[in-house]
């Protein structure tokens, strides 16, 4: 007989005991370990996903901040450019005004110089003319001329005295007294040398006794 029923029973019992032991010592611990590992991996993956999402969000925020910063920078740069242009324009205007002022001042000083120069030249020319006239008069002087001149001079002095006392001044002198700066020109048209003086009258002397004709012009003026 190949079947021993006691052995069959014993083996069945052994097998059931083995089932319990293996469940106790093999399947449950192994399955628990696998489950724990899978949960851990799932948790780590979830953490990684959350971190990835967080990183993505932070990256978006940084990009947004970057864009805002760029915009602000561009606005500030534009504003600074405009301010610099305005400042440049203002400085240019100031410089132009200063240059105009300097130019006007310079022109004024040049005009003053010209005026002074004219005055100087006029004075010199008057002096030269007077000297030439004096020289010419000295060279051309004769008795009749000197007499005639003395006569005219005397008459005009009288006329001057008459003007002070109420008598009218000769109209020609009244109209243009400067035209008589030269003694030759101050001769009235009607006055002509009547005769050639034989003797040369002495010119009227000034208070200082000088023979310079400067006092004449001073008196005529």
């Amino acid at each position: 007989m190949l079947i021993d029923w006691f052995t069959v029973g014993a083996q069945a019992l052994n097998f059931l005991i083995l089932v319990w032991l293996m469940k106790r010592f093999l399947y449950q611990p192994i399955l628990h370990a696998i489950d724990a590992r899978e949960q851990r991996i799932a948790r780590e993956l979830a953490d990684a996903d959350s971190k990835r999402a967080e990183a993505s969000q932070e990256r978006d925020q940084l990009q947004q901040k970057n864009q805002n910063f760029e915009q602000q920078r561009a606005a500030l740069l534009n504003q600074a450019t405009l301010a610099a242009q305005a400042e440049r324009q203002r400085l240019l205007d100031e410089a132009r005004q200063a240059a105009d002022a300097w130019s006007a001042q310079r022109q004024q000083s040049l005009a003053n110089e010209v005026r002074n120069l004219h005055r100087t030249i006029t004075g010199r020319a008057q002096a030269e003319v007077l000297a030439i006239a004096r020289q010419a008069l000295m060279d051309l002087a004769s008795t009749s001329l000197e007499e005639r001149m003395g006569e005219v001079f005397t008459r005009r002095l009288r006329a001057l005295d008459g003007g002070r006392t109420g008598s009218p001044r000769p109209s020609r002198l009244r109209r243009n007294p400067r035209s008589c700066a030269a003694p030759m020109n101050c001769r009235p048209t009607s006055a002509r040398p009547s005769s050639t003086p034989s003797t040369r009258p002495s010119p009227p002397k000034s208070a200082s006794g000088s023979k310079r004709p400067r006092s004449w012009s001073a008196a005529w003026n």
Binding site: L2, I3, D4, W5, T7, V8, G9, A10, Q11, A12, N14, F15, L16
Partner: peptide, 10 residues
């Protein structure tokens, strides 16, 4: 055969 029978009976 006793063992295999026991397993089959299980």
């Amino acid at each position: 055969l006793s063992t295999t029978v026991a397993l089959a009976l299980c």
